[in-house]
Simulated scan of single mutants.
Amino acid sequence: MPRDGCRWSAWVALLAVVVLTTTGCVKRRMTIRTDPPGALVSVNGEELGPSPVSKSFTYYGDREVELVADGYERRRLVQPTPPPWWNNALTEFVTENLIPLTLRDEREFFYQLQPASTPPQTDVARRAEALRAQAQSRPPDPPPGLFEGLFSN
């Protein structure tokens, strides 16, 4: 009978070693795609590069995304990233530490950029003429007494 007890405790010890050494893992990754591709992507002020671009993340929550492309309107938005159903306050410890599998949470976001609106040619020409006239006009004289005492001997 003692041999069965030793065998049982050996299995329990082996199981404990396996559980403690094979911890769980969650890999989180977000990918941002744009139309047109190649827009410069920044997330929470960190420049990630041209789209499509991917980045690993640790925490769920809202992210501030900024997209910039030549000839397109700059786009700023807040992208929510809620946790999956298996990662909540009750199950997070188990999924992160005890399940001996790697869980993957891949998020993909797609954004359509709008072409930049250009003002009509007549407005551009009128603004250019106004700026040219302003640059060619003589600057106003300073108020009397503004520079008194600066250049005295």
Rank of each mutant, 00 (worst) to 15 (best):
T31R: 11
M30N: 02
L15K: 01
L15E: 06
R63P: 01
P140G: 13
P83I: 11
S42V: 03
L67G: 02
E46F: 07
R7C: 09
P37T: 13
P82N: 13
P120A: 15
E73H: 04
P80S: 08
D123E: 13
F109Y: 13
P83F: 10
A130D: 05
L98S: 03
Y60A: 05
Q136N: 10
N87R: 13
P120Y: 10
N87C: 04
P52Q: 14
R7M: 09
A128W: 02
F147P: 01
C25Y: 06
Y60P: 00
T23M: 07
S54K: 05
V124G: 02
A135T: 08
P36M: 12
V124R: 14
V41R: 03
E96Y: 01
A13S: 12
V94H: 03
L67A: 04
A130N: 05
S137C: 03
T81D: 15
C6R: 10
T58F: 08
T95D: 04
E46N: 07
S9L: 15
E47N: 06
E64W: 01
L131A: 15
V43Y: 01
Y72W: 04
R28T: 07
P100M: 10
A16L: 12
C6T: 07
R138Q: 13
L131K: 12
S51H: 01
P84A: 14
R104E: 13
A135N: 04
G5H: 10
F93T: 13
D123F: 06
R132T: 08
T122V: 09
R76E: 14
V43E: 03
Y111M: 08
F109D: 04
A130K: 09
Q114M: 09
E106C: 03
R63T: 07
V17Q: 04
P142V: 11
T34D: 03
P80K: 09
E73I: 08
K27F: 07
I32C: 02
L40Q: 14
S117I: 14
E106H: 09
P83E: 12
L67T: 04
E92C: 05
N44H: 02
W86L: 05
G24R: 08
L113T: 08
T81Y: 02
A13T: 14
G145K: 05
S54L: 05
V124F: 06
A13E: 05
C25E: 12
T102R: 07
W86N: 06
Y59T: 11
V12T: 10
S9E: 12
S42F: 00
M30Y: 15
S51A: 11
T58C: 01
P139M: 14
V94G: 01
D141W: 06
R76H: 04
R74Q: 11
G71S: 03
G71C: 02
T102P: 00
A133N: 11
R29K: 14
Q114E: 14
L146S: 07
Q121G: 02
A13N: 05
L113G: 03
D141P: 00
E129Q: 12
